[in-house]
C-alpha cells in the first residue's frame, strides 16, 4: 500500500500494527510517535485519535507529548525539510551568511513551506556535527563547511 493510503484511509491498521510491534506501555509512546512521524512524514490528528484508543490515553496527553519534541512533526510540511543550525559554533563559523542566503534562495522564513510544496525551512539547535560548521541538513543528509555559493547546487539534488 502506498504511504499516502496507509497514512490516510489505512491509518487505523497502521497504528495498530506499530503498537503491536513496539508495545503498548506508556514508555512506548515516544518510539511509536517517532515511527508514525517517519513513515507518514507527520503525525496527523487522525493518527493521534487512533493511537488514543489503542493505548487508552487521552488525545490531549498524546498531543502534549508529540508537540514537545522537535523530531515529532504534527503538521504537514513540504516534500523536503531544510534545517539550518542556529547555534553559536555554526554562527561563528560563518552561519550568519549561510542563513541569509538560504532564506533568500528559498524565499522562506523559518517554519514556512514553499507554495509548490517543495520546501519547508526550519531552524534547529545543535546537530552535533560542529566540527564541520556551518551545517545545513536537507531531509536526513548533512552538509558541512557550507559556503553560500554552494547552496543552489545542494538544493538542486532534491526535487
Amino acid at each position: 500500500m502506498p504511504a499516502e493510503t496507509r497514512c490516510e484511509s489505512g491509518i487505523k491498521e497502521m497504528v495498530e500494527g506499530i503498537v503491536a510491534e513496539t508495545g503498548s506501555a506508556r514508555s512506548d509512546l515516544i518510539p511509536i510517535l517517532l515511527r508514525i512521524s517517519t513513515e507518514c512524514s507527520y503525525i496527523s490528528e487522525e493518527a493521534i485519535r487512533q493511537l488514543s484508543s489503542c493505548l487508552r490515553l487521552p488525545e490531549s496527553e498524546i498531543f502534549a507529548v508529540a508537540t514537545f519534541y522537535h523530531m515529532l512533526l504534527t503538521q504537514a510540511h513540504g516534500r523536503h525539510i531544510v534545517q539550518f543550525c542556529e547555534s553559536a559554533p555554526c554562527h561563528v563559523a560563518g552561519g550568519r551568511e549561510i542563513f541569509q542566503a538560504l532564506k533568500d534562495l528559498l524565499g522562506l522564513k523559518p517554519g514556512e513551506t514553499s507554495q509548490d510544496d517543495r520546501w519547508t525551512l526550519f531552524t534547529t539547535s545543535c546537530l552535533g556535527v560542529c566540527g564541520i560548521g556551518p551545517v545545513v541538513m536537507v531531509d536526513t543528509d548533512i552538509y558541512g563547511h557550507v559556503l553560500p555559493e554552494q547552496l543552489p547546487a545542494i538544493l538542486e539534488n532534491y526535487r
Binding site: 506501555a25 506508556r26 514508555s27 509512546l29 515516544i30 518510539p31 510517535l33 502534549a64 519534541y69 522537535h70
Partner: peptide
C-alpha cells in the same frame, strides 16, 4: 536503547527520566 526525539532539556537527568517513561521531557 531509548532514542530521544529532539529536546535539549532531556539531557537534564530528571527530564530524561520523564522522557523514557513516555512523557513530556
Amino acid at each position: 536503547l531509548h532514542s530521544g526525539a529532539g529536546a535539549y532539556v532531556c539531557g537534564e537527568e530528571t527530564a530524561l527520566l520523564e522522557s523514557i517513561e513516555g512523557k513530556r521531557g
